[in-house]
């Protein structure tokens, strides 16, 4: 079950003016966290930002020996901007771990899986890569962004998965192949690789294209979805996506990790 607790800011690493990693003390959330879980963070006191913000728990790690949660953040508004400015030691209310994590318990050591990330969608895949590596499950990373600065934490992925298993694509060709990450992935499929499951996180356009590819190739997927959320635990009903059965499902409680086959992409 999720915990509502106050965690201290341990460190903030700024990658460029738009992206940063926020490390907070792990509290009791750390040991409960599985790949794909998220947390709701209140960015300071006062009413701007008013609501907590939802972030994937990117990694459960250590900062100078202190157990830590890492959040990889792109500045897109008042909440993500406010969160970038907290000094070390600042207490932040954090609710987590929340949601349905990536399904990984059924994987066998002989399985091979793919991780597909677009832009800031790398966030939930870092802990996934670490966990898969620890279990000895081979995973290929396909990671795309607009440019080199959008493709974050490459050293971590390459350390966990092996450099030869990490492939990049950028819109401007500044890193890896010029083009879309889904093209990278298509090429790998064309090469005859068979994946037990494809884990993905990225913008809706990427999800949409990938869902189509997976359906055609009859491959199983698990997508970590994103939406504006007020509560994070299934009561505001603000974060829903349309499902093929006609319902609206909450991303916070029935997700964030969902099968793309269950989502009604035409209505999204």
């Amino acid at each position: 079950m999720a915990v509502n607790e106050s965690l201290r800011v341990l460190r903030t690493i700024h990658y460029d003016e738009h992206h940063y990693s926020l490390f907070v003390s792990a509290g009791t959330i750390g040991p409960k966290t599985k790949p794909g879980h998220f947390a709701m963070i209140q960015a300071g006191e006062g009413f701007r930002p008013y609501l907590r913000r939802a972030f994937s728990i990117a990694d459960v790690t250590k900062v100078a020996g202190v157990p830590a949660l890492e959040f990889v953040v792109k500045i897109v508004g008042v909440g993500t901007a406010a969160l970038a400015r907290f000094a070390e030691g600042t207490p932040l209310p954090v609710l987590g771990p929340l949601g349905v994590p990536f399904p990984i318990d059924d994987l066998l050591p002989s399985d091979r899986v793919a991780l597909v990330a677009g832009g800031i969608g790398l966030a939930p895949l870092v802990l996934l890569a670490r966990t898969l590596a620890a279990r000895g499950i081979a995973a290929d990373l396909f990671y795309g962004g607009r440019n080199e600065n959008d493709v974050l934490k490459r050293a971590d992925f390459e350390r966990f998965l092996g450099p030869h298993r990490c492939r990049y694509a950028t819109d401007d060709g500044s890193l890896g192949r010029r083009g879309r990450v889904t093209e990278l992935f298509t090429n790998a499929l064309a090469g005859g690789v068979r994946y037990r499951r494809v884990y993905a996180c990225g913008p809706v356009a990427m999800f949409r294209a990938l869902a189509e590819l997976l359906a055609e190739a009859k491959l199983e997927g698990s997508f970590a979805m994103e939406s504006e959320m007020a509560c994070g635990f299934g009561v505001c009903l603000g974060c829903v996506v349309p499902m093929v059965d006609g319902r609206f499902a909450t991303i916070c409680k029935e997700g964030p990790c969902v099968s793309p086959a269950q989502i009604d992409w035409a209505r999204l």
């Binding site: 701007r48 930002p49 939406s227 504006e228 007020a230 974060c239 996506v241 209505r267 999204l268």
Partner: peptide, 12 residues
């Protein structure tokens, strides 16, 4: 159908 919520100044 979504989007169903958005934050506003001191509220939503």
């Amino acid at each position: 159908p979504p989007p169903r919520i958005c934050e506003t100044d001191a509220g939503m």
